Simulated scan of single mutants.
Amino acid sequence: MRNVLEKGLLLGIGLAVKSKEQIEMFVEDLVKKGEIKKEESNDLISELIQKGQQTQGQVDDMIKERMKIILNDLNLATKAEVDQLEKRVRQLEQQKQE
């Protein structure tokens, strides 16, 4: 399960990098076509990247929320629950030894 989550995270990072490259190529094409001035290109790139990051953040939040729902539906124990059970087992083992 952890491996799947890591792959999803890496995919998101890869998409962000690819998107930045695509944005730069898109803006460069606009400059070549004369639709924007070279001086405006850096501002446009920054603005588009910022909007992309905001969108990526929203997508990440939706994915996290969906993952919580999926994990909850699977009825898996949380780390806190496992830690609590381990503590309880240690206590019982100590009582048994006494």
Rank of each mutant, 00 (worst) to 15 (best):
L74E: 10
K18W: 15
G12H: 03
Q91I: 02
V17F: 14
K37C: 00
Q84D: 08
K68T: 05
V4T: 04
E65M: 09
L11Y: 04
R66K: 10
F26H: 15
Q95D: 06
L71C: 05
V4Q: 06
D60E: 03
L5A: 13
L74H: 13
V59L: 14
K87F: 06
S19P: 01
E65H: 11
S19Q: 12
L5Y: 05
D83A: 07
E21M: 12
Q50T: 15
L11G: 02
I23C: 12
K79M: 10
L74Q: 11
I63C: 07
I63E: 09
G12S: 03
E6K: 06
V27K: 14
I70M: 04
I13T: 01
K38A: 03
L92P: 04
I36R: 14
Q97V: 02
Q54H: 15
A16R: 04
T78W: 09
Q50F: 15
Q50M: 12
I36F: 11
I69H: 11
L30K: 15
K64A: 09
E40Y: 11
V17Q: 11
K18R: 12
K37V: 00
E39Q: 12
N42Y: 05
L10T: 00
Q53T: 06
E47C: 11
K20F: 02
R88T: 13
E40L: 12
L44D: 09
N72Y: 11
I69A: 03
R66I: 04
L5F: 01
L15M: 09
E40N: 12
Q84F: 14
I69R: 14
K33W: 03
Q94G: 06
M67C: 07
K51C: 10
N42S: 14
I23A: 13
A77Q: 06
E21F: 07
E40R: 13
D29K: 15
R88A: 15
N42L: 14
Q97I: 02
E28W: 08
E6Q: 08
V82S: 00
M1H: 02
L76C: 02
G8F: 03
R90A: 15
L5H: 11
D73K: 08
G57K: 10
K37F: 01
E21C: 06
K79G: 05
D60L: 05
E47W: 14
I45S: 03
V27D: 11
A80K: 09
E35C: 04
D73Y: 10
V82F: 01
Q94F: 00
D83F: 04
K51S: 10
K38T: 00
Q50N: 13
D60M: 05
E6A: 08
N72P: 00
A77V: 07
E39F: 09
E86A: 14
Q54S: 14
Q94P: 00
K7H: 08
D83P: 01
K18P: 02
D83G: 03
K32D: 05
S41N: 01
K18Y: 15
D83E: 14
G52F: 07
E86H: 07
M67S: 07
N75R: 13
K18E: 08
L15D: 08
E35P: 01
D43V: 10
S46Y: 09
V27I: 13
Q94C: 00
A77F: 08
